[in-house]
Structures are given as structure tokens and as C-alpha cells.
């Protein structure tokens, strides 16, 4: 399912895990992450939403970054998962599955 706009509070809560999962697929940079988020049905996520999340992931040591010169223009900041990031993603995936199972069970009669 795709939606142009998910409830803001949902995105606020869960976008970080989605971003982490995208970075886990391979080294990537900001603009590519927004494209991936859109392709995965999360809608068009703005830079103003994405970069603070990336900043928090970096602060927490879940991703490491490197600036590299682009073909043209002001260069790109590449993001790569750290071992801590891999472990963190694994843990969050399990927690999310448990949470979503509970909610799905609860909502069964209403959907």
C-alpha cells in the first residue's frame, strides 16, 4: 500500500527505522534515500525531515559518513551502517514485528 501522505506522527515515529533499513541495503546518500523511501511507499520525504534523522543516526553511532566529491556540484555525503547500526536494526525489526502483530490482532475486527 502506498499513500501520498501518512499521518505525520507515524512518519515521525517510524521513518528512522525505514531509513536505517535502506542504509543497510548498501552505502547510499541523502537524495538516493529519499528516492528509496518514495519507491517503498513512504511518500516524498523532505530534506528537512530526512537530514535530522540521519544526524541522529550518526550521533548514535549507528551509521558512519564520508564526504566524497560528486561528478559535479558540491559533493555527496555517503552513509554506511556500522556494526552497532546492524545490531540496532535487527533489534528494532524484532520490536516492530511484535508491536505490529499486536496492533494487527487488535484491529482485525475493524479493518
Amino acid at each position: 500500500m502506498t499513500a501520498a501522505t501518512w499521518p505525520t506522527s507515524w512518519l515521525k515515529g517510524f521513518l528512522e527505522v525505514a531509513v536505517l533499513a535502506i542504509i543497510a541495503e548498501g552505502e547510499t546518500y541523502g537524495y538516493e534515500i529519499t528516492s528509496q523511501l518514495e519507491a517503498n511507499g513512504f511518500g516524498a520525504v523532505k530534506g528537512g525531515t530526512l537530514y535530522p534523522i540521519l544526524g541522529r543516526l550518526e550521533e548514535a553511532g549507528l551509521v558512519q559518513t564520508e564526504w566524497r566529491a560528486g561528478d559535479s556540484g558540491p559533493g555527496r555525503k555517503y552513509y554506511r551502517l556500522t556494526p552497532d547500526g546492524g545490531a540496532g536494526l535487527h533489534e528494532r525489526a524484532a520490536t516492530w514485528r511484535a508491536f505490529s502483530d499486536n496492533l494487527t490482532a487488535l484491529l482485525k475486527e475493524h479493518s
Binding site: 546518500y29 537524495y31 530534506g47 537530514y51 560528486g70 556540484g73
Partner: peptide
């Protein structure tokens, strides 16, 4: 410096207006 470079890089890539992209 990081935050500044991120904005420049992103805007150069997308061609967006900075206020649209970053608020």
C-alpha cells in the same frame, strides 16, 4: 559545517528551493 554542506549538496542534487526542501 556539516549541516551547511548537507543543504548545499541536497539542493544541488534535487534543484529544489531550500525553503521547500528544508522548511
Amino acid at each position: 559545517g556539516e549541516i551547511l554542506a548537507e543543504v548545499q549538496s541536497h539542493i544541488a542534487e534535487t534543484g529544489e528551493d531550500p525553503v521547500d526542501a528544508f522548511g
